[in-house]
Amino acid sequence: MAPIEPDHGIAEPVDDSEHRVVYHRELDELAAGVLRLGAMACETIPQGTEVLLGGNLSDAQAIIDADDEIDALSVELEEKCYSIIALQGPMAGELRRLIAIAKLVAEIERSADLMVNVCKAARRMFGAPLTPRIRGVLASMGKESNKLLRLSLDAFADENASLGLALADIDDELDQLNRDIVEAIFEAHAAGQIDLKAAVQVALIARYYERIGDHAVNIGERVNYMVTGWMPEHDSVLRAKNRDRPPGESVGGASPDVEPGD
């Protein structure tokens, strides 16, 4: 077995089977880590919703504390991405994959943060009674945002680009629930069943859930980029370029090599 060459910086990976085995094991571990991080973040959603609707304050603290572990894992995964990029010189699809992972880890981590926000808001409005309709819409938002995040992780695990892109449409349901909650708050207020403080907290909480859905959509887009090299933002880039050009000189389809940007 030949010793591993020290010149990791070169673009072409060293043709060394042991080296490749280590490299692929690192990639597999990274993917497993992303799924574990995703699972941890997904779990906080039903947990946090239970805190919100059941009012168990010690569970709220447990979720807030557990977020540190999620943060730690996301930092670890991101650094692993950078170290693989720096040391192994991945190309094309593999490079895109690593960059996509570095980006979507942040989206997952942010989703968990939003559930921490839900728990804190639940503590702020502790004891305030909510109407059955508000409770029902919040429960549905919890389920829907959990579903979206899970689907985005499925898209990642299966490298399913079309599922990744479909998330934007699946997210419509959650957006509708976000409109429903506003209506439910007005309805409760008209009936004198909710006070102003609680109403504001409920509206914020709904917004947190809705943002989780948006993060899931972003993860889906990253997955699509990982697989195909295209992101919806590339179309915007193209449109912007064409606006700046005189007519007749428009630029054709987006190149897969365009740097990801948002």
Binding site: A32, L35, R36, G38, A39, M40, C42, E43, R150, L153, D154, A157
Partner: peptide, 10 residues
């Protein structure tokens, strides 16, 4: 596994 199973494995 993924989701819950990933947590059990961890």
């Amino acid at each position: 596994g993924r989701h819950g199973n990933a947590l059990v494995e961890a």
